[in-house]
């Protein structure tokens, strides 16, 4: 149940990137995700899959970074797809309104189909 230190691994897939996270998505975790996003976004990548299979705890600061990505992608008609969400995170994202502007998928395969 306990998450270890936050880290992420990014995979490039055709026209998108898949960011796989591990650990608590807080200020540190959120900043790392945003930095990773901007790194690829500046190279023209507009579609992002965020795989949270190994992250089951997120705080509101972490969420604010995710909203920043969503807003940025909305300006350029890009897409953000969340996948492998823990039920508690899914509920949190629903309440925070993230799924009004981003999609969710049960698994990576399904997420890639949305793009």
């Amino acid at each position: 149940m306990m998450s270890s230190e936050f880290n992420l691994v990014t995979e490039a897939k055709d026209n998108c990137i898949v960011i796989n996270t591990t650990g608590y998505i807080n200020n540190i975790g959120g900043q790392k995700i945003v930095d990773e996003f901007y790194k690829h976004n500046s190279n023209g990548i507009n579609n992002v899959v965020l795989n949270l299979a190994n992250s089951n705890v997120v705080n509101s600061i972490g969420i604010s970074f995710l909203i920043e990505i969503i807003e940025k992608l909305n300006q350029s008609s890009g897409k953000l797809i969340f996948t492998n969400l823990d039920p508690s995170i899914e509920k949190t994202f629903t309440i925070m309104g993230l799924f009004q502007f981003a999609k969710k998928a049960d698994n990576l395969e399904e997420a890639l189909k949305y793009l």
Binding site: M2, S3, G23, Y24, N27, V57, N59, I61
Partner: peptide, 27 residues
């Protein structure tokens, strides 16, 4: 920890003023 936006937290289980166990988050 998550809902108060704390960076981390510790739960200490204390019996007769002795810490018998400790849990922390994040890992």
């Amino acid at each position: 920890v998550a809902l108060t936006n704390a960076s981390s937290g510790v739960l200490q289980i204390i019996s007769e003023n002795i810490i018998v166990s400790e849990i922390g988050f994040p890992g």
